[in-house]
Amino acid sequence: MELLYAACVGLMVSCGVFLILRARTFPVVLGLTMLSYAVNLFLFSSGRLSTNQAAVLGYSAEYADPLPQALVLTAIVIGFAMTAFVVILAIRGRTDLGSDHVDGQAPKSNKKVKV
């Protein structure tokens, strides 16, 4: 199971990084979201994998490590704030610059998008 878990994290990192390297804003945002999923899973796994051991006192004999969980919980919420900020920045950028390109060179035909 550990191998499968690690493979999933790796695949998500790959997909996230590939999307982040695209030239338009929306895939970059998607990639960032994907990468933050992967990072959350990675951090979470530093408490090792365990089943049916939720860190609620009195419900099981052994408990999963609660510390990475607490860290990841806030990371999820902050990750949302970051994604939101980036996507709004993309919208603002598109409005102000007239293009959603992040490769530093907008194609001429896209410069003026008609309403």
Partner: peptide, 26 residues
């Protein structure tokens, strides 16, 4: 190439991490 390499590296680190016993401050 870059993303695959990075994915493989992260997966390896993750695997190495979760297959090792650890002492937690928890």
């Amino acid at each position: 190439g870059i993303s695959a390499a990075l994915g493989i590296i992260i997966a390896s680190i993750c695997y190495a991490l979760i297959t090792r016993p650890f002492e937690s401050i928890s």
